[in-house]
């Protein structure tokens, strides 16, 4: 799995690379538009993480070039502007997703995973991990063949865990994933605790091979038991 990180901030490049290399991705970096275009010409990437505000131009031009190549490369746009125009234009130009800076790595990871999965397994949009099976189109979960009926938020939560298997997921990234911009709430954490508690109980009941593990006060990990 090969990822191109187009990002001009060195500190940010390093962070993203370190994070994705831990997941076993092969990461390459481009700091300018020119550099990125050269790399795209020469190599094939499964996913491009694209910061659109670059010193030598708008990253959206890279997106246009990628689309002209007609290769299956997923693109996720990162933007510090959080402007709706950028989002609309990016998605219109064929980007697969859009994430506003600052973001949580778990969120970026989940989205990159989803993009790669969509491109790799066309028509068969499901995830299998241990004895858990996600049917993404139908939004159903089966554990050892038995369907696990979940509420909407519980489903989203479990999918987020699965997308970040074996990675630490901080409480705030969970809250933000579930509530988006509405995560600024006193009881969003309380709500999450209760949801997670419930999920763990049910995964146990269904004898899932993976379950949620609390890591100190930092957050959770979805790990094999």
């Amino acid at each position: 799995m090969k990822i191109l990180i187009v990002e001009d901030e060195v500190s940010m490049q390093n962070s993203i690379r370190t994070y994705f290399e831990k997941s076993g991705y092969l990461c390459e970096i481009a700091a300018t538009q020119k550099n990125a275009e050269e790399k795209i010409q020469l190599h094939h990437y499964d996913c491009v993480i694209l910061d659109i505000s670059l010193p030598d131009g708008n990253g959206l031009r890279i997106l246009e070039q990628l689309k002209r190549k007609k290769v299956k490369t997923g693109v996720i746009i990162l933007s510090a502007k959080n402007s709706i125009d950028d989002k609309v234009e990016g998605l219109n130009l064929g980007a697969d997703d859009y994430l506003a800076k600052p973001f949580h790595f778990t969120e970026l990871n989940a989205r990159v995973t989803a993009i790669v999965r969509r491109l790799k397994f066309e028509g068969n949009n499901q995830i299998e991990i241990g004895n858990i099976l996600f049917q993404l189109d139908a939004q159903k979960v089966f554990i050892a063949g038995k369907e696990l009926i979940l509420k909407k938020k519980e489903y989203e939560l479990l999918l987020f865990f699965v997308s970040n298997t074996e990675r630490l997921i901080s409480k705030s990234s969970l809250a933000e994933h579930i509530w988006g911009d509405n995560s600024d709430r006193a009881d969003s954490f309380d709500f999450l605790y209760s949801q997670i508690k419930n999920l763990r109980k049910r995964l146990n009941e269904y004898q899932s091979e993976y379950n949620i593990q609390a890591i100190y006060g930092l957050g959770y990990k979805f790990v094999q038991e």
């Binding site: 500190s11 370190t18 949580h104 630490l168």
Partner: peptide, 19 residues
Amino acid sequence: HEMQTPVGIIQSKMELLME
């Protein structure tokens, strides 16, 4: 706007540290 970038970097380093 200008604060977004450094805050984002701090956040990313924090997450790496957590892991």
